[in-house]
């Protein structure tokens, strides 16, 4: 059953006089439980596509249906609420809240969802253990390495059991050791929690790990292969 359904989406940035076509009619479907990488050279539209699939940006035309909801018809407030309930985000620059501890960062989304303290703490601890950073629970992001920070970010994205997780170049700032351990963790989560992952990447190691690879070029899907 597809959880992401994008049909013929285009995105044109009207940069003053010359319009830039970031996406030129992308159509794709991603099923629940998939582990998908969106790849392509720089400027091919990966991040734009991910932003649109994450409800962070509106397509110029086309429709986007996420978890059976047409998000193109939602206003900003509704989109925020939709993202909170359905989507987990992992960013290239980790983007953790610097003033909160690791534990609090993981709890944060659940708190916005008004989950109980007991519930939040149990889930956050469970995820941190799975990520192998339980002992860092009370440390601030600035005290962690890049790899550890990204693991916290993945834990945060998974905490509320979203419908799917979007990760924009999650390994771009990591060394190879951190990359492979993060990929292992995400693959485990995909298997154990049934979490749906969609990455944008041009990291070969991520592409190798992905079970489906969608290749974009000049804003178009040029290849879609499943392993």
């Amino acid at each position: 059953m597809s959880i992401i359904k994008a049909e013929n989406i285009t995105k044109i940035y009207n940069h003053t006089v010359v319009p830039v076509h970031a996406l030129n009619g992308v159509t794709l479907e991603i099923d629940r439980g998939e582990f998908t990488a969106i790849v392509g050279p720089s400027g091919c539209g990966k991040t734009t596509l991910l932003n649109i699939l994450g409800g962070l940006d509106h397509p110029t035309s086309g429709s986007v249906e996420l978890a059976n909801t047409d998000i193109t018809s939602l206003n900003d407030g509704q989109l925020i609420d939709f993202r909170l309930k359905n989507i987990g985000f992992v960013f290239q620059a980790y983007n953790l809240i610097p003033v909160l501890t690791t534990m609090e960062n993981v709890e944060f989304i659940m708190l916005l969802q008004k989950r109980t303290k007991k519930d939040r703490e149990a889930r956050a601890m469970e995820l941190l253990s799975q990520m192998g950073i339980a002992e860092k629970a009370n440390q601030r992001p600035s005290q962690l390495s890049g790899g550890q920070q990204q693991r916290v970010a993945v834990a945060r994205a998974l905490a509320s059991k979203p419908q799917f997780i979007l990760a924009d170049e999650p390994t771009a700032n990591l060394d190879s050791k951190s990359t492979s351990s993060l990929l292992d963790i995400m693959a485990d989560m995909n298997r154990e929690e049934g979490a749906t992952f969609v990455f944008s990447t041009h990291d070969q190691r991520v592409i190798e790990k992905a079970r489906r690879v969608i290749t974009l070029e000049d804003g178009r899907v040029v290849k879609d292969e499943r392993k």
């Binding site: 994450g54 925020i80 309930k85 987990g88 985000f89 983007n95 809240i97 610097p98 989304i109």
Partner: peptide, 16 residues
């Protein structure tokens, strides 16, 4: 800016 953008991206409402 980035941090506030992230907060809104992950679902923190404008009121918050």
């Amino acid at each position: 800016t980035r941090e506030l953008g992230m907060l809104m991206a992950v679902g923190m409402s404008k009121v918050r």
